[in-house]
Design a protein around this nucleic acid. Structure first.
Ligand SMILES: [Mn+2]
Ligand SMILES: [Mn+2]
Ligand SMILES: [Zn+2]
Ligand SMILES: [Zn+2]
Lengths: 151, 151
DNA sequence: GTTGCATTGAAATTGAGTCTCAATCTATTT
DNA sequence: AAATAGATTGAGACTCAATTTCAATGCAAC
């Protein structure tokens, strides 16, 4: 349970799992996929869970440090997070519509481990973001562009 | 030659390769490895190459669009760039000392292409950042920590 | 209940990056 | 050569995510 992990992490530093920290933790883990600090904050206000913007940022940083939450990517509009209990995965980002597609490849993970061994680097985690165009946007472009039947 | 590529890119849009744009291009390509806009700007001032901060940012964006320059990663202190003539590669980042180690794996590239095919995603580029500890920092830690022979 | 930290939130601050806009440059047309 | 039109520039204003400040509060230990 993420609550105990977080509590342990805090207690190891002589800190406490406060009402606000717990609320932020719960909210973060209630998000289905990805989230950003600002909307987390706004949704918490709406539901009456009180925590300041500062506490949201502070707590998300703590959650990152203890590994319960990870940064997906930094966009022009801020950092995207996700909780990391459950399976690791990587991301494809459509540069047309912004859609984020998750994927996981065992071979890719294995290959990276092998590369780290070869390079004598102790890999702890990684962020892989493949940028390009999703099927949806490609089809839309074809319709608008009126593609011809030969290459 | 990067100058001609950039000129062509600009002319296709009815734009010009100005003194400032050229200076920024030259400066970017004179950097051995990675660089950030602010230090590029400061170094240009020191060497008497005049270009405003705004122009540096504007031009770096153009260079990204035409593919001569790429974003390596977004840190807390801004975006890191590198020029991309020469070979593509990925990065290992030591979270202890910040060292950035470059590597390239043909199998890794091929595997990603395959994954994109499977997912019906048109991959255009990717950013892979493996985070962990470099050999140097691991050795330093062992000396300081005085590791014992039993777990 | 007093001491000592940890914690909080409102507000101020920071800082990367963008935008504005008047002045300037440059190619093209008269 | 002068006029025109659009691109370009730079100083500084602006945006906005994120951090920091600091006085007030909470909480555990003594
Ligand atoms: Mn995800
Ligand atoms: Mn590099
Ligand atoms: Zn798309
Ligand atoms: Zn290191």
């Amino acid at each position: 349970m993420q609550q105990n992990i977080f509590r342990k992490f805090l207690e190891d530093r002589g800190w406490r799992l406060t009402k606000q920290r717990n609320a932020i933790l719960q909210k973060a883990f209630s998000c289905k996929g990805h989230f950003d600090p600002e909307s987390l904050y706004m949704e918490m206000r709406k539901k009456g869970m009180k925590a300041s913007r500062a506490s949201v940022y502070r707590t998300l940083n703590l959650l990152c440090e203890c590994g319960l939450v990870g940064k997906v990517s930094k966009t022009e509009h801020g950092t995207i997070y996700e909780h990391t209990l459950g399976s690791h995965h990587d991301h494809m980002v459509c540069t047309d519509c912004g859609e984020i597609i998750e994927f996981y490849s065992e071979s890719l993970e294995k290959l990276q481990e092998e590369i780290c061994r070869e390079m004598d680097f102790e890999g702890k985690s990684h962020i892989l973001e493949i940028r390009g165009h999703c099927r949806h946007c490609r089809m839309k472009k074809n319709v608008l562009g009126g593609e011809s039947s030969n290459g």
